[in-house]
């Protein structure tokens, strides 16, 4: 099966690779790959305006710390009720054999703490709420 396409846009012929995976359309054109989120048949509103599946655009300035990737929690550096500062490390995750430290984006108190040591977490799972 090939994903080779020829399409015409405004009278111009373009050749590209394209494949739909789930609600994402993957395109490779002139040496660059990009994606576009599609409306699923269920009419779901899920998707990214900028075409990056799984982007955490809502991370900035939010007190909600979500797992930016699937992986394992290997260190929890804060406790419930603790005061934390901007950029203070909260949780250390491991994925693909590398460690990643998740920092707080805001100043405040640790209101909710879901991550447990050794726990396997999925992408987007809320681990800490600072407020």
């Amino acid at each position: 099966m090939s994903c080779w396409w020829e399409v015409e846009v405004e009278g111009q012929r373009h050749r590209l690779w394209a494949e739909r995976m789930g609600d994402t359309l993957w395109i490779h054109h002139q040496g660059r790959s990009f994606t576009l989120e599609l409306e699923s048949s269920a009419g779901s509103r899920r998707g990214r305006s900028r075409g990056t599946p799984g982007s955490q655009g809502d991370l900035e300035g939010s007190g909600e710390i979500k797992a930016p990737m699937p992986g394992k929690i290997i260190k929890v550096l804060v406790e419930l009720g603790q005061e934390v500062d901007v950029q203070q490390p909260l949780v250390v995750m491991e994925a693909m054999k590398m460690e990643y430290t998740l920092e707080s984006a805001v100043k405040g108190k640790v209101k909710e703490l879901y991550g447990e040591l050794g726990q396997q977490v999925s992408l987007g799972q809320v681990l800490v709420v600072v407020g």
């Binding site: 396409w5 399409v7 015409e8 846009v9 405004e10 373009h14 590209l16 394209a18 739909r20 609600d23 359309l25 395109i27 054109h29 990009f34 576009l36 989120e37 599609l38 409306e39 699923s40 048949s41 998707g47 305006s49």
Partner: peptide, 25 residues
Amino acid sequence: RSDRQLAEAVVKTLNREGLGGPRPR
């Protein structure tokens, strides 16, 4: 704009071919 037009053209072709399919936002 051109990226989006390409994507739309792909989806349009799918629709025309009777394969149905989603539309890009």
